[in-house]
């Protein structure tokens, strides 16, 4: 399974999510039909619960793995203002991870188990974070393109049928929108700077453009989970519709930046009222999902090392809390 920032699809050869059965509780179906919000105490079908747990958990994992490619430049940010903005941005990602794990916990799982599943490779995170951040301009490209794609995917999730997820997404989207603007601003400054800075910006856009389009998942006719997620009101628009929306948004913005998108086939199609664009190489996406991307091993090793190195600290905190609780006069209620 691959979670693409609020999207959910299966790579070829993997088992798709179990299809829904017809024994969904009446109250649940009535809620969906009335476009109401499903809340944790409602009677939820198991398959709906499992799908949501997986999607929210993988979204949370994406946020915390996503801290690494940008964290990679905190120590080297080229001005103190940029350093402060970047630290705040990566901090926001940790905060998004916290809201999302909390949303998943309303479905009866706990964060420690979800993290174990991430660390053992049983749950995935967005493939985009398996690409390296090679220059400062990548901070701009990630903000503009990756956060831009995430917003296109996530804004509809603010109306997702599951209340706690929808509410978490409202907060997340507000911050993502700020992140996207700062990414755009980094690229704008670079593309209007020295020739070396402009080249750096163009190179970053060239490297991040296609992987950003892959974030929406495979084409609709190759996306086995989408129909069920749409029926459940988790997903509102198809992968291809969202991808098109993203391209239509990015093309005029690239012009405003004075940068080109690395696709000679991009042109306005009057009849469709959309931009045409070239074919995405989904073979690359599936290779990255399978673990063969440029940074899969490093991202996982970094995450697992942080968790293992911190084990003694978490154990100490628990031991201290137990001692405090056992002390005379401690509130045992």
């Amino acid at each position: 399974m691959a979670q693409v920032y609020g999207n959910d699809f299966t790579a070829p050869g993997e088992t798709p999510a179990r299809p829904a059965t017809s024994d969904e509780p009446e109250t649940f179906r009535a809620l969906l039909e009335g476009e109401g919000r499903v809340e944790p105490r409602d009677d939820l079908p198991d398959a709906y619960r499992r799908t949501l747990v997986r999607q929210i958990a993988q979204h949370a994992h994406s946020e915390i793995i996503g801290m690494q490619p940008e964290g990679n430049w905190i120590s080297r940010a080229p001005s103190l203002r940029r350093k402060a903005i970047l630290m705040a941005k990566v901090q926001d990602e940790a905060g998004h991870g916290l809201y999302l794990y909390a949303a998943a916990e309303t479905l009866g799982v706990d964060r420690a188990d979800l993290l174990d599943q991430l660390h053992s490779g049983r749950q995935k995170y967005s493939s985009i974070f398996n690409y390296p951040t090679l220059t400062w301009a990548d901070m701009g490209a990630i903000g503009w393109l990756v956060d831009g794609a995430a917003i296109v995917n996530q804004v509809p999730l603010c109306r997702c049928s599951y209340g706690p997820y929808a509410r978490a997404m409202i907060r997340v989207c507000k911050e993502e929108s700020f992140h996207q603007r700062q990414g755009f601003e980094i690229l704008h400054t670079l593309s209007h700077g020295t020739p070396a800075q402009k080249a750096m910006a163009q190179d970053a856009v060239d490297r991040y453009w296609w992987p950003s389009l892959m974030m929406f998942g495979p084409p609709d006719d190759d996306s086995p989970n989408s129909a069920q997620s749409m029926a459940w009101g988790i997903k509102r628009f198809s992968n291809d519709d969202l991808r098109q929306r993203f391209v239509d948004m990015a093309v005029p913005q690239a012009e405003a930046l004075g940068l080109t998108l690395p696709d000679p086939e991009i042109r306005w199609n009057e009849d469709r009222g959309h931009h045409d664009f070239g074919e995405v190489d989904f073979t690359e996406l599936f290779e990255v999902i399978k673990g063969n991307g440029p940074c899969n091993a490093e991202r996982m090793a970094h995450r697992v090392r942080a968790h293992e190195d911190g084990a003694w600290v978490r154990e100490a905190a628990n031991a201290y809390a137990d001692k405090q609780a056992a002390r005379p006069g401690a509130d045992v209620a």
Partner: peptide
């Protein structure tokens, strides 16, 4: 302090250490 962001023992601590680093950076500026 910035080194810790993405490396802390738990997620709450990534947030806290980033906060502290940001305060210090603000003072420095």
């Amino acid at each position: 302090m910035g080194w810790w962001i993405s490396r802390a023992p738990q997620l709450e601590e990534d947030v806290a250490l980033a906060n502290i680093g940001l305060d210090q950076l603000g003072q420095a500026r």
